[in-house]
């Protein structure tokens, strides 16, 4: 039973991991992108649109490469566009990051539900959802031998390629941020853009790159949610507040993607733990769902109380940079 619990916690945690890794990459460049929840919606719906177009124009058996590649690429493209909008407004036009991010979330959730709703209408079913079972079956393929390995298989091997990529991306991001020249430059941009600029780093380019890559990573969280976790079923608003939870996870992980891996599983576990208490009323379940937010608050408070330089948010987080400001 514990194995099942961990398995389900991981499944819950993966979208959060994508989102928080994306947001950490973004925040390291000094951009506080509160549009992540919207971007994750767009990442999801873009994948759904891609998959929908492919599945519904399919004559025979699907091509295993295309059925993965098309939703994947359309998802990446969708979130990239969102990242570009954010960058254009906050970096090029130096707009307020909080306002832009919130507007992006409104916009993104709108896009998700609008196209979702339109597709649902197009299929003309009684259900308020679209089902993309073929695509999903490819996206949720796990190791074929996982079932034979008991608890070990269930905990470690029973996930799809996207889940593993989430972990790989998080580790990779950690490594790049900490141990490469690009990572050093990126951190400098987020900490002190004037210094980075004086050191010959193209601040705007780094901000653009980090934010766009971050958006694409976060968007994959939306794609994973629909195609694997939700078995290819898109229904409006089903993704819920996971985007905000991903932002909470960034704080929990004190801006380190590798801690985010553990954190995402923990958050996933907290999200579903109420199912594991017997005789828990519906109302008490709602209280349990509060847990990830409360845990995040506690981490936020502890970090601020200890006031250790290494654990603080990037120093210029949320501020626009203009070289000739004086």
């Amino acid at each position: 039973m514990i194995a099942t619990f961990i398995h389900r916690a991981v499944m819950q945690g993966i979208p959060l991991l994508f989102g928080s890794t994306g947001e950490i990459i973004t925040e390291k460049s000094g951009n506080l992108n509160l549009g992540i929840p919207g971007i994750m919606y767009v990442g999801g719906i873009s994948g759904v649109i891609g998959a929908f177009l492919y599945e519904h124009n399919l004559a025979g058996d699907p091509n295993p490469f295309l059925i993965i590649a098309i939703p994947l690429l359309s998802s990446l493209l969708g979130s990239l566009v969102m990242g570009l909008i954010y960058c254009f407004l906050t970096v090029t036009l130096r707009a307020n990051q909080n306002v832009t991010g919130l507007a992006l979330t409104t916009f993104g959730v709108g896009i998700g539900n609008f196209f979702g709703g339109s597709l649902i209408k197009l299929v003309d079913t009684d259900m308020p959802s679209i089902t993309l079972s073929k695509t999903s079956s490819y996206f949720s393929k796990t190791f074929p031998f996982a079932d034979n390995l008991g608890w070990f298989g269930e905990i470690f091997l029973s996930y799809s390629f996207l889940a593993y990529s989430a972990i790989i991306i998080a580790l990779l991001a950690s490594y790049i941020i900490k141990n490469t020249r690009a990572g050093l430059n990126l951190r400098a941009v987020g900490e002190n853009p004037a210094t980075a600029d004086a050191a010959g780093i193209n601040v705007n380019r780094y901000k653009y790159f980090a934010t766009c890559i971050g958006s694409m990573v976060a968007g994959l969280g939306g794609l994973y949610y629909v195609m694997d976790y939700a078995c290819g079923i898109w229904s409006n608003d089903a993704f819920g507040d996971r985007g905000w939870l991903a932002i909470a996870l960034v704080i929990f992980a004190v801006w380190r993607p590798n801690i985010s891996i553990i954190g995402s599983i923990l958050f996933g576990g907290l999200f579903i733990i109420h199912n594991y208490f017997e005789n828990l009323g519906m109302s008490a379940q709602e209280l349990f769902k509060m847990a990830p937010y409360i845990v995040t608050l506690i981490v936020l408070i502890i970090v601020s109380m200890r006031n250790k330089k290494e654990n603080q948010p990037p120093e210029s987080l949320g501020l626009s940079y203009f070289r000739e400001e004086r």
């Binding site: 020249r181 050093l184 951190r187 900490e191 210094t195 980075a196 004086a198 010959g200 330089k309 120093e315």
Partner: peptide
Amino acid sequence: IHQHFKLVDVFSATENIVLGLKEKGRY
């Protein structure tokens, strides 16, 4: 060398020194 130092506070001396450089070879 600016009057107001252009250094990143949380970085080490070396990290600040190599910041923005494009040296050959691995970092």
